[in-house]
Design a protein around this nucleic acid. Structure first.
Lengths: 119, 119
DNA sequence: CCACCAAGACTACACTCGTAGTCCATAATG
DNA sequence: CATTATGGACTACGAGTGTAGTCTTGGTGG
């Protein structure tokens, strides 16, 4: 159920747009990462075996589609980080990120209004 | 320079309290994880080789101390997550976490005042 | 003083990951 | 039709991980 770093690059593509054939995924992943098409296909296969993707035959090839939601996966990742290392408190994570990358006024406003909405 | 999941359990112990001998680390890690002392010692060795811990001989054993700061490591982790999967925007991470775990009023207030301070 | 235990050094071993390569069959192309 | 390019299936292979086990040796409890 765990999605590795490289695999997540492939997932990102399919979360943005799906279903896609393997060649389409290859095209879309290629610019960023400098991977051989073989590598991308291997990742697609592994993700399918893991149950993160579904594929259906289409002619000579397959068409892939995510089986897990990006939101769920993100929640999972965020939750793990915060729960395992921050005693479940989110603020230190915000602080840590801010210190490293900085936050624009727009960022701050976005978070502020988000907090309001959560009330 | 990368700290694995299991290794980070050991780091947590030493970030909380240091320097500690290997036996002390074993004691402190034990309750949570169900690891043999051997496992903990292996992790201590690997972390030392990686340069994440320093150790100095003490009698017939060693005393360990972190060489990397918890804060730095957290910043790193948080930054990776946000930059690789959220286009560098922190708000969606806050949202993701909140949806999963919920945020108390105290949590929200903590973050709000943090945002103020960052101005 | 001796048997035994514990700590470090070294070894193990299957699994995951990153990153392809080989082999084979079919589809496209000249 | 013969050739080549392509996609899937399977294979590869070293580094890193999780999780210990063995071997050796020095301190510890009778």
């Amino acid at each position: 159920m765990n999605i590795s770093e490289s695999e997540s690059r492939v997932m990102e593509v399919l979360w943005r747009e799906h279903p896609l054939t393997s060649s389409e995924v290859v095209e879309r992943v290629a610019p960023g990462e400098n991977w051989s098409p073989k590598t991308v296909r291997t990742l697609l296969t592994r993700l399918t075996e893991k149950g993160a993707l579904a594929r259906e035959p289409e002619g000579r090839t397959y068409r892939f589609r995510p089986l897990i939601e990006r939101e769920d996966w993100l929640r999972e990742k965020a939750g793990q980080l915060v729960n395992q290392h921050l005693d479940g408190r989110l603020a230190p994570l915000v602080a840590a990120f801010a210190e490293r990358e900085g936050l624009s006024e727009a960022d701050r406003e976005e978070i502020r209004s988000l907090l309001e909405k959560l009330k």
